[in-house]
Amino acid sequence: MNDPRALLEVRNLKVHFPVEKGIVFRRRVGWLKAVDDISFSVAKGEALGLVGESGCGKSTTAMAVAQLQRATSGQVLFEGRDLAALSPRELLDARRNFQIVFQDPYSSLDPRMKAGDIIAEPMRIYAARGGLAMSEKEIGAKVTSLMDKVGLLPSFAGRYPHEFSGGQRQRIGIARALALSPKLVIADEPVSALDVSIQSQILNLLKDLQDEFDLTFLFIAHNLAVVEYFCSRIVVMYLGTIAEVAESAALYERPLHPYTRALLSAVPIPDPPKERLRRRIILKGDVPSPTAERAGCPFRERCSEAMARCAIESPKPVEAEPGHLVACFLYAGKEG
């Protein structure tokens, strides 16, 4: 599993939150297992997508990777270094290389800062610490070039966030994330708050920037069509675990996990005759509560192909085809 090309490697990551009860005497009554033992790696230059429905742990994974959420156990290796083992100073230095684009362009920009200052802030912080040799003048020039790159008029640098539309604000967020020339960009649902006609603008912009700056992406989204368009490889999550990992073309052509198949069949296609002919797998019920103590496969209650074994042990990801991992006993035989 030690991949020399991996820029980011996540090993056996677990993020559990205590569930507490009581007002005066708080006691722990259980654990919410938001992320439960997942491993994956992101190679340099690729765009890896994390998809799943709400509550599957995709955002928690992103926050744990960015060290904004402490992991319960497991490791996050960035360029081979365990981020959790770094001192706060070292972590701050390392952070230059992984930056985040947030979901909500309304709440992720300080309303009292001008656009130019928002984009300049990361550079000013590192310049003040001596980690970045840039004068205020150079920072200003970089802000201008970044705004130009993300499709904003540099003359808007003096405006406040409320003077921009949602799409433009997301562009500011992207410029801020790129200010320190990071190697990895973690994009947490970067287009889900935007209108349809703006979504494609931002997706195309991110693609162009990826080519131009040789960026690596960890791209989190719930919209499977968006992920397919943007990512070369996809991790499907369900209830804090990984259900399937595959190249994006393979995943859409031959989904193996029963959950992935249902998920893909549920995505509407904007083509009425095709829609009428599609066989939709309608899943019963909802995602079970992540606080429940449970054994076996997390998907078994909603799975049409569940077997006796699924209730007893939980399936581990196996390589069903080259580069195509799936955590399901239907494919366990193929391991040999």
Binding site: S197, Q199, N204, L224, V226, E228, Y229, I269, D271, K274
Partner: peptide, 21 residues
Amino acid sequence: DSIPRIDSAGRHRLYSIPGAP
């Protein structure tokens, strides 16, 4: 033309309408 769709063969670039509503 600007919506990504899961049934689109190949990975041609999405069209985008310039500007905002």
